[in-house]
Write a protein that binds this DNA or RNA. Structure first.
Lengths: 181, 181
DNA sequence: CTGTATCCCAGCGGATACTG
DNA sequence: CAGTATCCGCTGGGATACAG
């Protein structure tokens, strides 16, 4: 098999299997079919991500967020407004004893669901620069072990890349006739 | 304890617990301590993300990537070069029978470790726009259930947001005495 | 303290035309 | 087919100054 093997398959990395009609589609992407683009429109910027990160770290007040992100006030202000508008954060009035009422930013449920993404990006950034001795680390509060993001299916199985598949929704796949209009 | 409680704690959303010296630091962020920023410098743009997504979907050739991402050739070319430079993708020569040798882009191990991030963003994009009936879906090849990204510690526990903690590395926590200038 | 308003610059990214 | 080169508009984001 040394002169015309059609598929070397030597050590080709795993990719997602293409199911059904997905394999044929060409231009389904640009039209925004993929929710990745929706997500990136909201949290695809550096400023959005670092603000979300700081809120995960427990920052709530404007000046705290500005200080800890290093963003300018103008950028922070605008981006926070976006994040509130998209339902990721919520403004909530609060009052320290003896002080006047102020607002603070807190995570909504939608926002907190970004947790795996933030963890995944931080872990990957760690891989990227193999300096494992400095910086910040996320750990399990109880056992102290480092956090990582993993992929799982809703049936509970761990899913490595080569066991994943991609398909178009609402097409008859695996059963046919899954009437779902 | 009903007249001067310092922390209402009514329905305050969960955040990460701040461990040790982390709680005191102010300006540790801007200096790039957090690996989130390193990650975003590489995959923080739309073009990078959609290219990575298409490679996960199994696209390998330049024109295929351009067509399916909707990026211009110039942008795709430059971004691919970046991704190869950062070790996320790899150029690999291949030859279809009877055709001349060409290059294709394949995932490296580093690149494939972005899988949880891509899954997490897609799942979150789904939450964002509650149209659950159209678009693309990632599923477990074997059982057909949808994929989701979850956070786990290296000891194997599932870690919800309120069980996570953040700390500075190489500081005396849980053991003490890690002198580090 | 919590922003808003301006100005200004760098980088992303589209369009088009051109090379190997 | 697989890019590169050029041009050019849009937006992200820093700095500074100002306002409630």
């Amino acid at each position: 098999m040394s002169d015309a093997q059609p598929e070397p398959t030597l050590d080709r990395p795993a990719v997602l299997e293409r199911k059904g009609a997905f394999a044929d589609r060409d231009a389904w992407i640009a039209s925004g079919w993929c929710r990745l683009e929706s997500a990136l429109e909201v949290v695809g910027t550096r400023s959005a991500m670092v603000l979300v990160r700081e809120v995960f770290y427990g920052a709530t007040r404007f000046d705290e967020l500005v200080r800890r992100t290093g963003l300018s006030e103008a950028v922070a202000s605008g981006r926070l407004k976006d994040l509130v508008g998209h339902g990721l954060l919520e403004r909530r009035p609060y009052r320290e004893p003896g002080a006047r009422t102020r607002d603070e930013y807190v995570l909504t449920d939608l926002g907190s669901r970004l947790f795996p993404v933030v963890v995944g990006l931080m872990a990957w950034g760690e891989d990227l620069r193999d300096d494992h001795h400095s910086g910040v680390q996320l750990v399990h509060r109880d056992c102290g072990a480092a956090l990582e993001a993993t992929v799982r299916c809703t049936a509970g199985h761990d899913v490595p890349l080569d066991e994943g598949a991609v398909r178009l929704k609402d097409e008859d796949w695996a059963r046919g006739a899954v009437r779902r209009a």
